[in-house]
């Protein structure tokens, strides 16, 4: 489903799918805000930080969804802007830049997490375990993805 959203071979259809995704995200964000207002705000169960995180996350999702919705609606109604956006998204150099940036960010995050483990073990075992899980998940996902791609390509 996610791959079909970003498949630009039929850009018009891809944009309509993105609009559906935007509505879905908006629903998630609004649900989060409603949960905060009616369940979290008045309760003393969660600390201030957790409550702020709840509201911040839900607001962020709502803002992102509205931005996506406005952009997609504009592109669907304006053919020349849609053509420009399509070229920009399909441009192979842009794709290479995005892929290499992701690769670099992934490698950097992996090594930064691995290095931070040496500090975290001494400071907080819970934080160290959380980071260790991130490193382990990264390695497992990389392994599965490389196995899948070596079969597919």
């Amino acid at each position: 489903m996610l791959m079909r959203v970003f498949d630009t071979s039929d850009y018009d259809r891809s944009l309509r799918r993105r609009r559906l995704v935007a509505f879905g995200l908006l629903a998630v964000g609004i649900t989060g805000i409603l949960c905060y207002l009616f369940l979290i705000k008045g309760s003393d169960v969660l600390p201030d930080f957790a409550r702020g995180f709840y509201l911040g996350g839900a607001s962020g999702i709502c803002i992102g969804a509205v931005f996506l919705l406005v952009r997609v609606t504009y592109l669907l109604s304006n053919r020349s802007a849609q053509k420009k956006a399509k070229i920009k998204e399909q441009d192979e150099r842009e794709k290479t830049i995005v892929n290499q940036a992701f690769q670099f960010a992934g490698m950097f995050t992996f090594f930064a997490c691995a290095a931070s483990l040496f500090v975290l073990v001494a400071v907080s075992m819970a934080a160290a375990l959380a980071v260790l899980c991130v490193v382990a998940v990264y390695a497992i996902v990389w392994l599965i993805a490389s196995l899948y791609l070596s079969k597919k390509l």
Binding site: I87, K88, Q90, E92, E94
Partner: peptide, 8 residues
């Protein structure tokens, strides 16, 4: 004509 950006 070749559907890329001018930057490319």
């Amino acid at each position: 004509a070749v559907a890329v950006t001018r930057q490319t």
